[in-house]
Design a binder for these strands. Structure first.
Lengths: 210, 210, 210, 210
DNA sequence: AATGAATGAGATTTCATTCAT
DNA sequence: AATGAATGAAATCTCATTCAT
């Protein structure tokens, strides 16, 4: 039985290897700019080998972005349903998103840069819709938490949807900025910077204490 | 003489037409995903005609993004040097950026989505550097305004650079979001939404009134 | 105006050139065995040039087979509608088919060897159906002529459809056989052999003279 | 010893299974259009397993067509040598061909559609020649029977070779036609249709009774 | 100045075949 | 013996760029 198991393990390793390589290349070059050649080279396999596991370039891309979006989505839905007070909830969501980023920066960037338009003709309508819905859900969980806070009187009567968008985008921006700044050996301020950013935004919407 | 002038006018029209088409295509498909074929079709000229005015695809792209970035950059530098009080200055910068967007949404998006990495091997180091510097400058003008505000005691002692990034990204996010929402005939809330967003962020960093 | 006309002429020449090359290659190697590379080499153009005029390998194939089938089809329909006596009509049809073959042997072979099955997944259902109908029509015209002969009492009460199939296949077989036989400098017996073949079959179905 | 025998039996089963699958695929897609992948899938073995028994795709093809052609060839030679009267002999040959078809329709179609040209560069000259000779032999046996009939005065002085070709092709056509017509549950008229076809052709060459 | 036409280089994808286990 | 996995070579197709007119 050991043989079968080892085979399976190796296969999964290979697939993971391919996905990791692909995530890097897609991230660096974008979908159209990425080449299967480069993915293969980076994964140290032949081009043909990619097609053992993925039906096409689009499929490969989708296989990266879908689970990533899904994972984050699940986590945010779970947090949205938790009994945390609104401000804590928003912070926890930011925390979860940061952890998602930390665990797999390439997946994070794929999600963050995902551009529906580019795939209109490549992915099936169903798959495209699925991705769109996942993305919407993510924003919506944050929106709900903010709406709760407004209802509870801890946030000012801001536009919850707008605020969720601002938070999401601030997040992306900060990470991108800090990454550009980073150099080997330099201290990593990403987490603390993000916390500061969130703090700042929340400060802007917190209701004045009665 | 009239003939020469007409010729020149027509030539300039042609170039403008090409740039506009290119801006749309680059925006919709990204650099790698855009094709000269589509640019030409949209401009209603032959592919070969593009090469009368631009040396290459990269050149075409650069000729779009550089002046756009430059224009915005000039405007922000000018505002930064103005004697406006800090909060007004930041608002004026946001206003200017919005007007830049309104005047040429495609140019704005090119600037907003510009990804240096993708051009590492395509643009000359010099050109690449130039773009980077323009982008940095933009952020830096906002940063300076915020720093002034902190110095003047009207803003809390936040990280000025971080705040400028958050503002820039919130801006991008709001525009993108509102564009997705927009449908023909529907009222356009972009300007007011942006003002609300900025208000919210500024609220978060304003020093409590003594 | 001469320039435009020359251009058009050259373009049509090029397309004809390509079609002729393609017809030969498809005939020699079959659809799957044919390569665009070989078609291009034979037409003395680049592979890419083929795609200026044809969207795909399937399209190229279709563009050969459809007009060929159509031409023959029209001719047979026209003959079927003519007031010739049945036996003469069948002979005229054979004559027309032979002339079609003589005018463009490659087209003839494409039509003769056309195998619907191979294209099930490549051509659109519509195109496939169109080809099928043309093929059916061809057989049907012969069938009608035979049915007329039976009605008129000059042919025995044979199965008209079956007879048309036999004639069609005998025709194909004789041509293929004679082609294999042919060598440079040797006399060409194709036409007379075909006439003999048809005579033989007609002899088998002619009603005994009362 | 039983084990060895079982092994051998299983091996032979496997080979037969492979050949049957290959025959179907080659028939449906032609040589170039067939893929080893599909052959393997249909035989429910791995692609690699095919290479345990056949050296190459060509070898697999040859191993199908050669024995099939040989079998039919033997049978026709045997009938040609039999003391049957000419007309009966021709009928018996048709009967034998039909039985060959019935026993293994895929093999029949391989033989019927076999196109030497496609294999010019794939098979060795020797193998190619062998196939050609078998095919020629088949036609020749029919030709001889017809020639006997002419000599004996029961057939008109037709071209014996031509007649054999017509018969062979009529045969192929009728089978193809009837197969297209057939639907599950529908009566199968192939045998009777073939008999009618042969009758018709023989009627055309029978000498008028003195 | 402008374009229709062409193409070289390279992209994605397929497939017969081999190899380690 | 059998197979899952891998790959080199080649196939189809694309596209930025050039050229003759």
């Amino acid at each position: 039985m050991g043989i079968k198991e080892r085979r399976l393990r190796e296969k999964n390793n290979r697939i993971r290897q391919l996905k990791e390589s692909a995530a890097v290349v897609f991230r660096e070059k974008g979908f159209a700019g990425a080449t299967m050649e480069e993915v293969a080279r980076r994964a140290e396999v032949s081009k043909a080998a990619i097609y053992l596991y993925f039906r096409s370039k689009e499929d490969l891309y989708y296989s990266l972005i879908e689970p990533a979006l899904n994972r984050l989505s699940q986590k945010l839905i779970q947090l949205a349903a938790s009994p945390l007070p609104p401000e804590e909830k928003v912070k926890a969501m930011a925390q979860a998103t940061y952890e998602f980023y930390e665990a797999d920066p390439d997946a994070y960037h794929l999600v963050a840069r995902y551009k529906a338009q580019e795939f209109d003709r490549l992915l099936t309508a169903e798959k495209l819709n699925h991705l769109r819905n996942l993305m919407k859900s993510n924003l919506y969980q944050v929106e709900k938490a903010i709406a709760e806070g407004i209802e509870a009187g801890v946030f000012k009567a801001v536009d919850a949807k707008l605020t969720s968008i601002i938070i999401w985008n601030a997040f992306m921006g900060v990470i991108q900025f800090q990454e550009n700044r980073m150099a080997p050996g330099r201290r990593d301020y990403r987490r603390s910077t993000l916390e500061a950013a969130l703090e700042m935004i929340l400060a802007g919407i917190k209701a004045p204490r009665g």
